[in-house]
Design a protein around this nucleic acid. Sequence first.
RNA 1: UGGGGUGUAGCUCAAUGGCAGAGCGCUCGACUGUUAAUCGAGUGGUUGAAGGUUCGAGUCCUUCCGCCCCAGCCA
Length: 433
Amino acid sequence: MSHPSSRIADLHAHVGTTVTVRGWVTHVRSSGKVAFVVMRDGSGILQCVLVKSQVPAEAWERFGTLTTETSVAISGEVRAEARAPGGHELGVTELEVIGTSPLDYPIQPKEHGVDFLLDNRHLWLRSPRQAAIMRIRHELEQAVHDFFYARDFTRCDTPILTGAIGERAGLFATEYFDEGMAYLAQTGQLYGEALAAALGRIYTFGPTFRAEKSKTRRHLTEFWMIEPEMAWYDSQDNMKLQQEFVQYLVGRVLERKAEELKLLERDTTMLEKVTGDFIRLDYSDAVKLINSKGSTTEWGDDLGAEDEALIVADYDRPVFVMNYPKQAKAFYMKENPADTRTVLCDDLLAPEGYGEIIGGSQREDDYDRLLGRIKEEGLPVDQYGWYLDLRKYGTFTHSGFGLGLERTIGWICGLHHIREVIAFPRLMHRLRP
RNA sequence: UGGGGUGUAGCUCAAUGGCAGAGCGCUCGACUGUUAAUCGAGUGGUUGAAGGUUCGAGUCCUUCCGCCCCAGCCA
């Protein structure tokens, strides 16, 4: 075709001229002598109008063959039209079929079960709601980079294949030449600490793997995590950065993805309150609070999902829970000088019941205490030689945290389950598509 | 791994132990401004699998399988 082509989003610049738009048919309607084709090109949706008496006979006949998801090139005059979604429509003069689509396209404009939709995830992504989630995800990922770039952090990539090191939760194992088993990384943090000693302030952004048999709306076996690590930051500096970070992420989505949030029917009143200071609760006070609400959790226990919900219920903003008992947390967290039963750490609980989105801590920088903790936990000391070296050769105060990308998106989008938040979720019972 | 559910048409779901159904989709027809168009007609089944009870099982029992939700683990 000889007409200039345009994306749907750019049509406003072509009103009154004839252009060609390429995309996929989402919907076909006919009223005898007037027909409507609604199409999608990834940038927007467009209604195209065919009037039988005004198009070539073969174009009218071709209209009759259009099915959902047929790929097409449609040419016509762009005009402003209040009745059309998006405010513009195309008065069709030519209609070319690029690729046909059989009648059994599985996704209908109606309610489907989640299992069916996930089986058809490769096609489900074409629906507007899923596309909106992907766009918000992209905005958040870009916002992460912008936030740290503006603060002169260096982005570092840490290995995905590792020897046994890191946290103790379930590991995916694979054979690694003559070196025995390799494990898919469940955190880049320990490597991040080494890089912080070299570069000062760093962050990682990469996939994380947990082989835990978790079947809840908050868990994936493969997810993406952002892990900053800062030299010369103590626990207070760490929490201040976390608050600024989360405020920035929420603000970016509110500012630039309002249309997508609206499409998701997200009530944003709670998100708008994230601008204020977050609530800070000491672990011991948190336990008193939940006990007063009927929880039987005792001092020393980790907080369960129900406990988190009880804590968050009183507040309209994210809540830091700080300084957990040593036995409830990982070996690398620094002992709290003010109460040596506890460590200098914080979990950030999202409002509205979305649970923990950040886990952070100041790291143990004393060689002997760290070695003692490694032994207490029964971890193989020889595997941690390089990690101990970071304390042997010029130890330094440092802190960091991990933010779960999918949980954060799920909260901001107001979704029930984080499986919708990643293009191809990996769950305990789902490895494909 | 524990507790609670669930499995029927391509999809979403009905059916007191008594003829397996509806809506959507799809097909055909009507309609010159539709918005998940509307209206009429048509199409659709190894009721997850195996065994058992019964005159008779989608329904009750046993075993197995799949999935969902909650919990634990965590982000």
